[in-house]
Lab assay of single mutants.
Amino acid sequence: TTIHVGDLTLKYDNPKKAYEIAKKLAKKYNLTVTIKNGKITVT
């Protein structure tokens, strides 16, 4: 599972963990989490 945050690309083997991290990042920086085709993007 890949999380895209701006220019950063973070890879995680565990999709659930990746989603949790994405949610935390989104909350911290007041951003939105988008999931599309298995890719998690924080914008």
Rank of each mutant, 00 (worst) to 15 (best):
T1F: 13
T1D: 05
T1I: 14
T2K: 05
T2P: 04
T2F: 08
T2R: 05
I3F: 03
I3T: 02
I3W: 01
I3S: 02
H4V: 14
H4G: 04
H4F: 11
H4Y: 12
H4C: 15
H4M: 12
H4L: 12
V5I: 15
V5Y: 09
V5T: 02
G6D: 04
G6M: 08
G6P: 03
D7P: 10
D7A: 14
D7C: 15
L8A: 03
L8G: 02
T9L: 13
T9P: 03
T9A: 10
T9Y: 08
T9Q: 12
L10S: 02
L10M: 06
L10E: 03
L10A: 03
L10T: 03
L10D: 02
L10V: 07
K11L: 14
Y12Q: 02
Y12R: 01
Y12T: 06
Y12H: 03
D13C: 15
D13S: 09
D13I: 07
D13L: 09
N14P: 03
N14M: 05
N14H: 06
N14T: 12
N14A: 04
N14G: 05
N14D: 15
P15I: 13
P15C: 12
P15E: 10
P15R: 08
P15S: 09
P15K: 07
P15N: 06
K16A: 13
K16F: 11
K16N: 08
K16I: 12
K16M: 11
K16G: 09
K17V: 13
K17W: 12
K17Q: 13
K17L: 14
K17M: 14
K17H: 09
K17Y: 12
K17P: 01
K17E: 11
K17N: 05
A18E: 00
A18T: 02
A18F: 05
A18Q: 01
A18M: 04
A18Y: 02
A18D: 00
Y19N: 04
Y19E: 06
Y19Q: 05
Y19L: 15
Y19C: 05
Y19D: 02
Y19P: 00
E20M: 14
E20T: 09
E20H: 10
E20F: 13
E20I: 13
I21A: 13
I21K: 05
I21P: 00
I21S: 04
A22F: 08
A22L: 09
A22N: 00
A22R: 01
K23W: 13
K23R: 13
K23Q: 13
K23N: 09
K24I: 13
K24V: 09
K24Q: 11
K24F: 15
K24E: 07
K24P: 00
L25V: 05
L25E: 00
L25Q: 01
L25F: 06
L25D: 00
L25T: 01
A26P: 00
A26R: 05
A26C: 07
A26I: 03
A26L: 05
K27E: 09
K27G: 04
K27L: 11
K27W: 08
K28M: 10
K28I: 09
K28T: 06
K28D: 03
Y29E: 00
Y29Q: 00
Y29K: 02
Y29M: 02
N30A: 08
N30K: 09
L31Q: 01
L31T: 02
L31I: 04
L31R: 01
L31M: 11
T32R: 09
T32I: 14
T32P: 02
V33C: 05
V33I: 14
V33N: 00
V33G: 00
V33H: 00
T34I: 14
T34C: 09
T34E: 09
I35S: 05
I35K: 05
I35V: 12
I35Y: 08
I35M: 09
K36W: 08
K36T: 13
K36S: 13
K36G: 11
K36C: 13
N37G: 11
N37P: 10
N37S: 09
N37A: 11
N37E: 11
N37Q: 09
G38K: 05
G38F: 07
K39G: 07
K39N: 13
K39V: 15
K39Y: 14
K39S: 14
K39I: 15
I40Y: 05
I40S: 01
I40T: 02
I40R: 01
I40L: 08
T41R: 07
T41W: 15
T41Y: 15
T41I: 15
T41L: 14
T41A: 07
V42D: 00
V42Q: 01
T43I: 11
T43H: 13
T43R: 12
T43Y: 13
T43S: 13
T43F: 12
T43P: 01
